[in-house]
Amino acid sequence: MRRTELFFPRYAWRQPGATRGDERFRRASSLLCSLLLLLLSACSSISPKETAVSKTGESTFKSEPPKKVQAFATPERLKALDTQEAFEYRLGPGDMIGILVWRRPELSQEGILVSPDGFLTVPRIGNIQVLGLSVAEVKALVTSKLEFFYIEPEVTIRVQEFHNNKAFVLGRVSKPGVINFPGKGTLLEALALAGGIPDQNKDTSLTKCAIIRGNDTIIWIDLEDLLRNGNMALNAPVRNNDVIYIPESSDEMVYVLGEVQTPGAIQIRSGMTVLKAVMLAGGLNKNANAEKVFVVRQQTLKGDVIRVDLKKLLESGDFTQNFSLMANDIVYVSPGGMTKFNYAIEKIMPSLQMLNLGFSDLESLGVMERLRSKIWGQSGFINSSSSGATSTTTTTSP
C-alpha cells in the first residue's frame, strides 16, 4: 500500500458497489484537504518585490539629512562679538537733522531729512553724504565746507528724530516688525518693544532665538536660560539692522513608539525628558519592557541609539538616564518577553477554532469513525451531549 493510501485509501472513492458511507467519506476527506490548504495559505504574508536600483545610482528616494543643531552662544562669545567699546549713534535714512550756524540765520535750518541714499541737503553747501557718520563727524564736515565762504563758522548739529537705530523682530512675538531703540539696544529691550512673547501657547517650549547680523553672522541665544533662569550674561547687545528671529516651536516634535498607551508624535514642551514623553503618550502598557526603552537621535545619517532603564529610574530614583529630548528624537518602548508569544497565540487561535469546527463536522459525517476503524481497528463514534459533555463509544476489533 502506498503511503498516501494510509489516510485516503482507494476504496474511499466512488466505485461500483460502493456504499453511501464511502461517498460521504470521500466528500469529507476533500473538505478536510480544502481546510488544510486554506489554513496554509492564510499563514502566508504579502512580500513586495524590491525594485532594482539603477547602476547610475540615481533615484528619487533620498535620505533626509538631519537638521543642523545650533550651538548656543556663550557669554564669552557674546562679549567678543561686541567690539564697540562705546555706543555712538550713526546717521542713516529717515533721520531728521537741525543745523544751527551762530550769527548766520540764513544758513540755519530745522527738519532736514536724510535721504534714502544717505545725503543731507545743507544751505549754501548743497548735498553731502552723511550715511554712517556720527554727529561729530557731520559737524566737522559741514564746518570744513563753510570755511570756504566764512571765517571760523560755529556749527551745531542736532538730531531731532532718530530712525537709524533699529532692528527687525520676526517670528514668535506679539508685534513683529521694525523697532527703534532710543539708545543702545539689547535683546530683552527688543523683545519688550515687540510686545513680548505671546503666552496663549504655554505648553510650547521657549528654547531659542537667533540674532542675524550682516551676511555671515548668526548668534543663537538660549532663551530658556535667559528668561527662565535669569542669566543676564546672555542679554546680547543689538546693533543697527540686526534681525531677531524667534522660531515657532509648534512644529518641533518627538516621536514615541512601541508599547505605550497612545503612540505618536508629541509636541516638544518645556523640559521635555524621556519620562515626560512616555507619560504624555499615556504611559507604559501591560506589554512593555520598562528595562528596554531606547532613544534614537539623528545627529548624522546613521544616528545614535541610547538605552534607558525606566524600571531602575522608578524603583531606585536614578534620574541619570532621564535625558532631555531634542526635536525629532524617537523614543521606543520595547515589548516584554511574553508579548510575542501572546501575539502568536492570539493569531493562531482563530485557526484552531476553525479546525475544531471542521473535526466536529467530520465526526458527524462519520469520517473520523472510518479513519479510526481502518488505522487503529476501532469502531464507534464521539458524540456531544446536550449538556456539553463528550461521550465516546469505542470497540476494538480482535
Rank of each mutant, 00 (worst) to 15 (best):
M349R: 10
V295R: 01
M326N: 09
L352V: 15
Q298C: 13
Q298I: 10
V295E: 00
Q353I: 09
S334Q: 12
L313F: 05
G336I: 06
V296Y: 02
V305T: 14
P350S: 12
S316C: 05
D329V: 09
S324P: 03
A344H: 08
I345S: 06
D318V: 14
L284G: 01
G283I: 07
L325W: 02
F294E: 01
T339H: 09
Q299I: 15
F294C: 02
A290G: 06
N287G: 08
L301A: 07
L301E: 06
K347I: 04
E315G: 12
Q298F: 15
V295Q: 01
K311W: 03
T300M: 13
A288F: 00
K311T: 00
Y343Q: 14
L314N: 03
F341H: 11
F319I: 08
E291K: 15
D318L: 15
L313V: 05
N328M: 04
M326W: 07
A288L: 05
L284W: 01
Y343L: 15
P350F: 09
P335Y: 04
E346R: 11
G317H: 08
A344D: 04
K312G: 00
G336S: 14
N342V: 11
N287L: 12
L325K: 01
T300G: 08
E291G: 10
L313Y: 01
V333C: 05
K347P: 01
V331P: 00
F294H: 08
R297G: 02
N287A: 15
N322D: 12
I348T: 12
D318M: 14
K286C: 03
M326S: 07
M326Q: 08
D309F: 06
Q321T: 05
N287W: 05
V331E: 00
F341R: 13
N285A: 07
G317S: 08
V331S: 00
G337F: 15
T300K: 13
N342M: 10
